[in-house]
């Protein structure tokens, strides 16, 4: 019984949150890794691209809500999501045209593009704050829980409850669908294969007649979609605040690098590695230990390795350790 209770406890406080957060990070890291693979720079504006996409979705959601549109138990935001993606895709394509293309033509060094992306980050960040303000925004509606803790306890007769929020279920489901679509696209369509070819060997892609500008445009569109989906899911699960999205940059980059920059599979793995480490290291294991250990050995401390405020430190330490021991990441990424 105690073992079952422990498992439920862990599922509730570690596994479910980590899987959710991992899915969100994986989607974010996929965007970063695609830009890196195709355009060959680390895009510092990615967090703010997520914020922008989410903002558009939030605005459209509010509009739909004011019209009385509702999807029942499913958040209205899902209906608004395609608009968010479309507007964000428009914005990044426009940014590419007026900003990045110039440097691409010049064959500028990657670090210059990183600096340029810092400028874009400023502009996007300002834009988002300008339009929606710097505060927390709530746009979630629909059902709150798939399973409530009380229901679960009544159902199973266990002492511990397992609560799964609707947003958590939605996150995982959406992430699985998006990732499946992405991999199908990359591995089975002509355009997707041309993207992989371009990422693998730019010059030879040119010699095969692949149009680089088209590859780049398709990449931006996909990245806009991934960023918006990741941002909206994160926003539904927690809340939407522009600055938080900027701060997500660190765990997202950590995930992409840990997995191996340029490797989509790596981005996903990295997302989960980072999420699980963050959650397990900042979780207080006292209760779990109390179940498993005999009563007289129960610990008096919280058994929390690090306070939640230090979760950045976790991504960072994992990042450094991986870089020191496996510089190209878990799944061999590119090293330019």
């Amino acid at each position: 019984m105690d073992i079952l209770n422990t498992l439920v406890l862990l599922a509730n406080f570690v596994i479910v949150p980590a899987v959710t957060y991992g899915s969100q990070l994986a989607l974010g890291a996929l965007g970063v890794t695609l830009i890196y693979g195709i355009l060959r720079f680390s895009n510092f504006a990615h967090g703010d691209t997520m914020a922008f996409g989410t903002m558009v979705t939030v605005l459209v959601t509010w509009m739909l809500q004011s019209w009385g549109v509702s999807l029942g138990p499913v958040p209205t935001a899902l209906l608004a999501l395609p608009f968010g993606i479309a507007v964000t895709a428009g914005l990044v394509l426009w940014t590419d045209r007026v900003v990045y293309r110039f440097y691409r033509k010049q064959k500028a060094k990657p670090v210059i593009l990183v600096i340029v992306s810092m400028g874009v980050m400023f502009v996007m960040n300002g834009l988002v704050r300008f339009i929606i303000g710097p505060d927390d925004q709530n746009f979630a509606d629909g059902a709150r829980f798939l399973i409530g803790a009380r229901e679960f306890k009544e159902m199973t007769g266990l002492k511990e409850g397992l609560a799964i929020k609707a947003s958590q279920g939605l996150t995982v489901l959406t992430a699985v669908i998006v990732v499946a679509l992405l991999f199908w696209f990359l591995n089975h369509t002509r355009t997707g294969k041309s993207m992989r070819a371009y990422s693998d060997n730019e010059d030879l892609a040119l010699l095969s007649g692949i149009n680089p500008e088209r590859v780049v445009a398709v990449t931006w569109i996909i990245v806009a979609a991934l960023a918006t989906v990741a941002g909206v899911l994160y926003g539904l699960d927690k809340s939407f605040k522009p600055f938080t999205y900027f701060q997500l940059l660190l765990p997202i980059f950590a995930a992409a690098i840990v997995g191996g920059l340029g490797s989509p599979l790596g981005a996903i793995a990295g997302g989960f590695v980072i999420a699980f480490s963050e959650v397990t290291i900042t979780y207080a294991w006292k209760k779990a230990a109390a179940y498993l250990l005999p009563a007289d050995m129960a610990p008096d401390g919280l058994l929390q390795l690090l306070a939640v405020d230090y979760k950045f430190a976790v991504s960072f330490v994992i990042l450094v350790v991986v870089l020191l021991f496996k510089p190209t990441g878990l799944f061999k990424g590119k090293s330019v």
């Binding site: 720079f41 680390s42 990657p110 670090v111 990183v114 701060q247 940059l249 660190l250 980059f253 950590a254 690098i257 920059l261 306070a307 405020d309 230090y310 950045f312 430190a313 991504s315 960072f316 990042l319 450094v320 870089l323 020191l324 510089p327 090293s335 330019v336």
Partner: peptide
Amino acid sequence: KTALGLRSDYLAIATLGIAEIIIAIMKN
């Protein structure tokens, strides 16, 4: 000592991270 031998993007991420950690320490 840890990050300088690495590529420039990695140094960037490493410094970004350490700055967040320093501020987190000062806050907590």
